[in-house]
C-alpha cells in the first residue's frame, strides 16, 4: 500500500474516532472503549511491524507492554518521577529490554523466535510476583496501586478525566502512527521487507540483518512500552493479570482481522476487535468462542484481513490497466515491420 493510501485510511479512522467524544463524551463506557481502541491499535501496529513486515515471529508484544506499564508505575510510585517523564523513560527501558531479547533471536528462525519470546512472556509473571520483582517495586502478587495520573498543563489525565485522556492518547497515537508510516515507507521499511522475503539475498545486497532486526525490536518495544506506560497512568492500578492469554489472543485477533503485514489494516482490526470484544461481554464465556469463530471465517474468506478487500479492488484495477498495456504493446509489435 502506498503512503498516500496509508495516510488516508489512518486520517479517516482516527479522524472519525476523534470526533466521537463530541457525541459520546458523557458515556464512560463508550469513552473507555474508544480509548482502548487507540491504545490497542498502536500496540497491535507495532506487532504487525515486527511480525508482518520484518517477518520476525516475536510473541513478546504483551510482555513489552507490561514492562512499559510496570517501569512507569515503579518510576512514578517508588522514585517519584513525574508521569509525563516516566512514560518516556519506560519506553526507553522497554526498548533496551527489547534489544536484549532480540539479540538471541538473530540466530534463530521463525518458530524458535516465537518460542523464545513467548517463554519470555511466561517468565515475566513469576519474576514480577517473586522476590526479585518485589525488590524492584513490582508489588508482588498484589501489584501496584495508586499509580498517579499524568499531570500536564495543570490538568490530570486519568480514568476520572476520560475525554482529556482520550485526546492525549489520540495525540500520541497520531505521532506513533506517523512514525510507523515513515519507517515503513523509508529504506528501513524496504530493508525489513527484503529481510523477511529473502534474508540471504538482502544480505548479499548489503543489508545488515543484525542492524535492521535489532532496530525493529528497539522501535516496536519503545512504542509498545510507551503505550503500556500510558495505560497504567490511565487505570491507576497494575497487576500481572495484564499478562493473561486473553490479552495476547485479542491482540493477535486484531492483526488477523486487519491483515498481517497490511498496515494500516491492523488499525481497522483494532477498531473491529475491541468493539466486538466489548459488545460481546454479556455473552460471558462464549465471547472468546465467537471471536475465535470470527477469526476462522476471516482467515478462510479474507486471508489478508479487511485490507485484503481494499487491495482486491486496487489489484483488479491494476490488472485491468496492465492487460490493456500488454495488449497495446503486442499490437505495436505486430504492426511493426
Amino acid at each position: 500500500m502506498n503512503a498516500k493510501s496509508m495516510v488516508t485510511i489512518l486520517a479517516v479512522t482516527y479522524g472519525f474516532l476523534g470526533i466521537l467524544p463530541l457525541f459520546l463524551g458523557d458515556s464512560s463506557i463508550y469513552m473507555r472503549i474508544l480509548t482502548m481502541i487507540l491504545i490497542w491499535s498502536v500496540v497491535a501496529s507495532c506487532w504487525d511491524l515486527i511480525m508482518g513486515y520484518a517477518g520476525i515471529f516475536s510473541f513478546g508484544q504483551v510482555a513489552f507492554y507490561v514492562i512499559g506499564a510496570y517501569s512507569s508505575a515503579i518510576l512514578s510510585v517508588s522514585l517519584n518521577v513525574t508521569p509525563i517523564v516516566s512514560i518516556f523513560m519506560a519506553g526507553t527501558i522497554t526498548a533496551i529490554i527489547g534489544v536484549i531479547i532480540g539479540l538471541p533471536c538473530l540466530k534463530l528462525a521463525g518458530p524458535y523466535i516465537a518460542l523464545v519470546t513467548f517463554a519470555f512472556q511466561l517468565a515475566l509473571e513469576p519474576f514480577l510476583k517473586g522476590p526479585l520483582g518485589k525488590a524492584i517495586g513490582s508489588g508482588g502478587s498484589r501489584g501496584i496501586i495508586s499509580v498517579p495520573p499524568i499531570h500536564i498543563f495543570g490538568m490530570d489525565f486519568s480514568s476520572s478525566e476520560l475525554v482529556p485522556y482520550f485526546y492525549l492518547t489520540l495525540v500520541l497515537t497520531l505521532i506513533c502512527s506517523a512514525v510507523i508510516v515513515v519507517i515503513l515507507k523509508s529504506h528501513w521499511g524496504t530493508a525489513f521487507l527484503a529481510l523477511k522475503d529473502s534474508e540471504d539475498f538482502a544480505a548479499s545486497l548489503g543489508v545488515s540483518a543484525f542492524k535492521y532486526k535489532l532496530l525493529v525490536f528497539a522501535v516496536t518495544s519503545f512504542i509498545t512500552g510507551l503505550f503500556g506506560a500510558l495505560y497504567v497512568h490511565y487505570v491507576g492500578i497494575l497487576s500481572t493479570r495484564m499478562l493473561s492469554m486473553e490479552v495476547f489472543t485479542v491482540l493477535l485477533i486484531m492483526i488477523v482481522v486487519g491483515g498481517i503485514g497490511q498496515y494500516p489494516g491492523v488499525v481497522l482490526g483494532a477498531v473491529v476487535t475491541v468493539t466486538m470484544n466489548e459488545l460481546l461481554r454479556p455473552m460471558g464465556i462464549y465471547r472468546l468462542l465467537i471471536m475465535g469463530g470470527m477469526v476462522v471465517v476471516i482467515v478462510l474468506l479474507l486471508p489478508d484481513g479487511v485490507t485484503g478487500l481494499i487491495r482486491k479492488f486496487s489489484v483488479f484495477r491494476m490488472t485491468k490497466k496492465r492487460t490493456e498495456q500488454l495488449k497495446h504493446r503486442n499490437e505495436t509489435h505486430e504492426s511493426s515491420p
Binding site: 524496504t190 530493508a191 521487507l193 522475503d197 539475498f201 538482502a202
Partner: peptide, 23 residues
C-alpha cells in the same frame, strides 16, 4: 543465487534500488 531469490513484497524497481542504496 542458483534458486532465484526475489523480494515478493517489493517491485522490480524497489528491489534494484535496494541494491543501490545498501550495497
Amino acid at each position: 543465487f542458483q534458486i532465484p531469490q526475489i523480494f515478493e513484497s517489493l517491485t522490480v524497481e524497489e528491489s534494484v534500488n535496494l541494491g543501490g542504496r545498501f550495497g
